[in-house]
Computed example of a mutant assay.
Amino acid sequence: MPEFICGVDEVGRGPLAGPVVAAAVILDPHNPVDGLNDSKKLSEKHREQLYVEIQEKALAWCVGRAEVEEIDTINILQASLLAMRRAVEGLLLSPDHALVDGNRLPRLSCTAEAIVGGDGLVDCIGAASIVAKVTRDREMIELDAVYPGYGFARHKGYPTKMHLQALRQQGVSEIHRRSFAPVRRLLKE
């Protein structure tokens, strides 16, 4: 049986702006974290609390990312897989096996298994989803101050009505994904 199993998940495939962020987490079976679940099913306050607890109790955790330029160059799916690989490769402990949320696997140096809906089914994947989401959300809040007027702190770069309206009014920023249709259309106008 594998000794170190890491959970892997990513956030930020759908937004029009910002990086895609992945996390890999190896939980400590002797120091469990209660209440883990798909990050989208938790309140922001609960996610923040679990984020701290995961970092304190996990045997290892790491965040990987792919930047906007990479997303635009290799496409969002490949960028997501790249961010996942970077997260796993950055762990201070080398995992024996990876459990990855979704139906696609990044290229890894350990064995891996894709689990659709894994973030709500497997604790280590749920932990990874929480670490990735809190990390990306915090970054988008910081980017809101750098790029005011787009509302990044509120919608985190997702294509909300407010974001699309701001994009039309203010134009495309450095952190917008030029390969995504709503942004690409604006660049052609």
Score class of each variant (00 low, 15 high):
residue 72 D to W: 00
residue 81 L to Q: 01
residue 43 S to F: 01
residue 50 L to R: 11
residue 89 E to D: 15
residue 65 R to F: 09
residue 51 Y to K: 07
residue 70 E to C: 10
residue 44 E to N: 05
residue 49 Q to E: 14
residue 71 I to H: 03
residue 44 E to T: 10
residue 42 L to S: 04
residue 45 K to N: 10
residue 51 Y to N: 08
residue 65 R to C: 06
residue 77 L to S: 10
residue 83 A to D: 14
residue 56 E to I: 02
residue 64 G to K: 00
residue 66 A to N: 08
residue 62 C to L: 06
residue 79 A to M: 07
residue 47 R to S: 02
residue 49 Q to R: 15
residue 84 M to Y: 12
residue 79 A to L: 10
residue 50 L to A: 02
residue 56 E to S: 05
residue 41 K to S: 07
residue 88 V to A: 01
residue 50 L to E: 05
residue 89 E to R: 13
residue 52 V to Y: 14
residue 74 I to G: 09
residue 69 E to H: 08
residue 51 Y to M: 03
residue 83 A to P: 05
residue 80 S to C: 14
residue 83 A to E: 11
residue 85 R to N: 15
residue 80 S to Q: 08
residue 77 L to Y: 13
residue 73 T to W: 06
residue 45 K to Q: 11
residue 52 V to L: 15
residue 44 E to L: 04
residue 87 A to Q: 05
residue 54 I to E: 00
residue 73 T to D: 13
residue 66 A to F: 13
residue 84 M to S: 01
residue 76 I to G: 01
residue 52 V to G: 14
residue 69 E to I: 04
residue 73 T to P: 01
residue 60 A to I: 08
residue 70 E to Q: 10
residue 72 D to E: 12
residue 66 A to S: 14
residue 54 I to V: 09
residue 87 A to L: 07
residue 40 K to S: 13
residue 45 K to L: 09
residue 52 V to W: 13
residue 46 H to D: 03
residue 65 R to D: 10
residue 75 N to C: 15
residue 86 R to I: 02
residue 74 I to Y: 13
residue 54 I to F: 01
residue 60 A to D: 11
residue 62 C to K: 06
residue 87 A to P: 07
residue 69 E to F: 02
residue 86 R to G: 03
residue 55 Q to R: 15
residue 47 R to C: 03
residue 71 I to C: 01
residue 61 W to V: 01
residue 66 A to K: 04
residue 72 D to G: 07
residue 81 L to M: 14
residue 67 E to K: 09
residue 70 E to P: 07
residue 68 V to I: 11
residue 55 Q to S: 09
residue 80 S to H: 15
residue 79 A to W: 00
residue 45 K to C: 06
residue 67 E to D: 11
residue 52 V to E: 14
residue 67 E to A: 11
residue 47 R to N: 03
residue 57 K to D: 04
residue 67 E to G: 08
residue 49 Q to D: 08
residue 49 Q to W: 05
residue 63 V to R: 02
residue 75 N to Y: 14
residue 55 Q to E: 05
residue 86 R to W: 00
residue 59 L to K: 07
residue 51 Y to G: 10
residue 73 T to Y: 14
residue 59 L to R: 02
residue 57 K to H: 06
residue 44 E to S: 14
residue 62 C to M: 04
residue 72 D to K: 04
residue 57 K to T: 03
residue 51 Y to A: 07
residue 73 T to V: 03
residue 45 K to E: 13
residue 69 E to K: 10
residue 83 A to I: 11
residue 69 E to Q: 03
residue 76 I to S: 07
residue 77 L to M: 12
residue 76 I to Y: 12
residue 71 I to F: 07
